[in-house]
Design a protein around this nucleic acid. Structure first.
Length: 469
DNA sequence: TGTTGTTTAGTCTCGC
DNA sequence: GCGAGACTAAACAACA
């Protein structure tokens, strides 16, 4: 589906992506460096301002949660463990990466994170209010809570290029958000729509001598300033969307008496451990012991609406079809009431295996395991302050001084924004010393790193708070 | 033919 | 209630 044609802007794209071919024109573009604009200080600071990163760290700090460095806990971009009892399962990784067929399924269902203890079904935890428990890189069921504009920005930031092709945006998103790998490709339409409509993005026409399709896109510095100032509105936090097919599978396996040991329901084996986890989940969600599967389902997956009357609009496909209420599989019942969609999903996706993984905790937040295609950053250097992973949450004097200095020098300058900027500069600065691979197209720069920043930011914020107290 | 880009339209959520 | 932002869907054109 994706042509991976991003090579026309990332000559190093062949690294890790053997199917990609480097074009001569793209090489020329990269070599002459003429397109590099973001390396200038004025733009870099603004363009690397990522408000969403602030949100990450703030959540952690406000929650009083232990925050560790990514290297300490490389499996969670917030550095928060699900709990000591969280299964330290081997990396499940992207199902697609382990042979699971790609699914054109349309992720539809929504859910809230309403449960204080969600370790039972880590991969099913909705992002909404506990984003630290979802690994979007490996979790194909939960839609990232970022707006498309944010995703585009992230891709652009990750690229550190002046301009980025649409296909590269696709690539980065699919590389870093497993959800989109399996989602209906309509999200690409939304990406294009966003690029065209959002003033933040400027189209850079392709040179006549540049081969390839389509033009390039870049961030308008003017609006990048808005990003920096925080004026850019953050995306509202929508209910997390879970693939309807997975809902169906879960429902099928939740309905039977959980006391049945290792029951085989619908061809899916549920281990006693998984059953216990499900019981714990029910208890946490307040599901009655004699629960109605539909009620439980509503609790577990949430209503499609976000609690305001379930007024979520029904997408167009069925709007025109006349049956609005059934559109989008928003209702948990739709998984069975829309056999066509579900069948198509079943036919293309091993949801049994996926659910097995989920129930067994194998669709864990773990990544960086043997299957992880992305090497993790071991160290982080911020403004010359090397943050060793071993330092972890410990607040070093250096970092404290750094923070103090930055805050005193820039009253209005958001520290996290600054750190985000610095982070986005430094990792590749190290890479650039050597043969920097195509971080975007090869996914070597990923949400891991971006989320690692969240860890470090949270650590710094904790340190700052402690120092102020 | 598939991809890219633009435009229009409808709906929803959230903040004011 | 209203406006802004966001999302989704679709139609259409241009282009490789």
């Amino acid at each position: 589906m994706l042509s991976m044609s991003c090579v026309d802007s990332w000559p190093g794209g062949s690294v890790g992506l053997e199917e990609e071919v480097v074009t001569a024109a793209a090489q020329a573009e990269d070599l002459d460096g003429s397109s590099l604009v973001y390396n200038s200080d004025n733009l870099d600071d603004s363009l690397t301002s990522l408000q969403w990163l602030q949100e990450f760290s703030i959540i952690n700090v406000s929650g009083g949660q232990h925050v560790s460095t990514s290297s300490q806990n490389p499996n969670h971009f917030f550095g928060q463990q699900l709990g000591a009892e969280a299964p330290a399962s081997p990396l499940a990784g992207d199902p697609a990466s382990i042979g699971m067929p790609l699914t054109p399924g349309k992720p539809t269902a929504a859910a809230f994170c309403r449960v204080p203890s969600l370790s039972a079904l880590p991969s099913l935890v909705a992002h909404g209010h506990c984003p630290d428990e979802v690994d979007y890189k490996t979790n194909p069921h939960i839609k990232p809570p970022y707006s498309y504009a944010t995703l585009i920005c992230m891709a652009m930031q990750a690229s550190k290029k002046t301009k980025i092709t649409l296909s590269c945006i696709y690539k980065w998103i699919t590389d870093n958000f497993c959800y989109f790998r399996h989602a209906d490709p309509t999200w690409q339409n939304s990406i294009r729509h966003n690029l065209s409509l959002n003033k933040c993005f400027i189209k850079v026409p392709r040179q006549k001598d540049e081969p390839g399709k389509g033009g390039f896109w870049k961030i308008d510095p003017q609006y990048a300033e808005r990003l920096l100032s925080g004026a850019y509105k953050k995306r509202r936090m929508p209910p997390v969307q879970i693939n309807p097919a997975l809902q169906s599978r879960l429902r099928m396996n939740l309905q039977p008496d959980l006391s049945v040991p290792t029951s085989v329901t619908g061809g899916l084996c549920v281990s006693p451990e998984s059953q216990q986890l499900l019981k714990e989940f029910e208890e946490a969600t307040g599901v009655d012991q004699n629960w109605d599967p539909r009620l439980a389902e509503a609790t577990m997956f949430g209503y499609w609406g976000s609690g305001k009357g379930h007024k979520r609009k029904q997408p167009y496909g069925h709007r025109t079809g006349g049956n609005k209420s059934l559109r989008r599989s928003s209702s948990p019942l739709l998984a069975t009431e829309e056999p066509t969609d579900l069948d198509s999903l079943k036919s293309n996706f091993d949801w049994d295996a996926l659910l097995d993984s989920a129930l067994n905790g194998e669709l864990s937040l773990n990544e960086g395991g043997p299957l992880s295609p992305i090497p993790r950053e071991e160290d982080l250097t911020i403004h010359g302050v090397h943050i060793s992973p071993l330092e972890g949450p410990a607040c070093t004097a250096e970092s404290s001084v750094l923070i103090e200095t930055q805050m005193s020098n820039n009253v209005d300058f958001d520290k996290e924004t600054f750190l985000a900027t610095e982070f986005l500069q430094s990792p590749w600065a190290e890479d650039e010393a050597g043969d920097r691979p195509d971080f975007l197209c090869s996914s070597t720069v990923s949400l891991d790193q971006l989320f690692d920043l969240g860890d470090s930011l949270a650590v710094d914020m904790n340190c700052k708070i402690e120092s102020l107290l």
